[in-house]
């Protein structure tokens, strides 16, 4: 770890000792190092929350934006500079509550970015309130009678919208997480990686032990076909004694960049102003 280009010890973190976020930070660093990337080629667009602080603790370009707005911001950055490897990163509240509409449309748009969701099933930073990922019945500061509604299923939603790369991993399974992040980066198009991340302070139900005893790698079963959308969708509902991790679904679809003719000439930020075309266009206002 000492000579990595992506050191994770640059700053003192604001996380509780033992938090699941540390595992994710380390795995991201190793995944990038493993792919031979340079920090200046990588951009992390993160939101607001405990999870969203992660990019500040590692080398890389960072745009630490608003709560819930990582996806449109990352989309704009990627469309402007396709040469950057772009991540969106944040918590489950950030992505699935405040940013829920953006999440739906990012799945449709298929912009070529990797979305890392630290899924601790609560709002950490605001001290433990229910998130869309909290299971029914969970008692929190804002749900003293217990969460009344169904948990949001990001994987099923992503598969329904035919997202290109839909995966789940676990912050307590470093090897799996590194492998999944690298596959997400290499996938051309939008990659969703929902990462089970124990919040040891505010979530006393979904603990390291709870996840560890339930998770299994679905890709170890060679008969599992991640291109079978229906099977993937069905599997995405498995959430009881057994919780699958791995790549649920994978499909190649045209990316958002391909919808924009301007991007055929390469990264937008490197292109000159189309002076001749603009001159012609303006002359079109002339009255004969």
């Amino acid at each position: 770890m000492a000579d990595t280009k992506f050191p994770t010890t640059l700053k003192e973190t604001a996380w509780c000792p033992g938090c699941g976020n540390f595992g994710i930070l380390g795995a991201v660093s190793e995944a990038l190092e493993g792919l031979g990337l340079e920090p200046s080629q990588v951009l992390f667009v993160s939101g607001v929350g405990q999870a969203a602080k992660a990019p500040h603790y590692m080398a890389g370009n960072v745009l630490n934006t608003l709560h819930g707005r990582t996806l449109p911001t990352a989309t704009g950055a990627k469309l402007a500079n396709a040469d950057l490897t772009v991540f969106a990163e944040g918590g489950d509240g950030d992505g699935y509550a405040e940013g829920g509409n953006h999440f739906l449309h990012a799945l449709r748009k298929n912009v070529d970015i990797t979305y890392l969701v630290h899924d601790n099933q609560v709002f950490g930073l605001t001290k433990g309130q229910a998130s869309p990922r909290s299971d029914p019945g969970q008692v929190t500061g804002t749900t003293p009678q217990g969460v009344s509604m169904e948990a949001f299923n990001p994987l099923a939603t992503a598969i329904t919208l035919n997202a290109g790369f839909v995966a789940r991993s676990f912050s307590g399974n470093k090897e799996h997480l590194i492998k999944t992040i690298q596959a997400g980066i290499q996938h051309k198009g939008f990659s969703l990686i929902d990462i089970l991340q124990p919040c040891i302070t505010f979530n006393k139900i979904n603990t390291f032990k709870w996840y560890r005893s339930r998770t299994y790698d679905l890709n170890e079963d060679e008969s599992y076909d991640p291109t079978d959308r229906e099977a993937a969708w069905k599997r995405s509902w498995e959430w009881d004694d057994k919780i699958p991790i791995g790549v649920f679904y994978k499909v190649e679809r045209p990316t958002l960049a391909e919808a924009h003719p301007a991007l055929e000439q390469g990264a937008l930020v490197k292109q000159d102003i189309a002076k001749e075309s603009i001159k012609k266009l303006i002359e079109g206002f002339a009255v004969k």
Binding site: R69, L71, P72, N81, N101, A262, L263
Partner: peptide, 28 residues
């Protein structure tokens, strides 16, 4: 197309503005 510009219709104005922020940060 002819002016080498990207115009992306957003899902809402929140997204539109944040996309603009992202693109401007990247330098355009």
């Amino acid at each position: 197309k002819e002016c080498a510009v990207v115009m992306e219709q957003a899902e809402d104005e929140i997204s539109a503005m944040n996309m603009v922020v992202g693109a401007a940060y990247a330098g355009v």
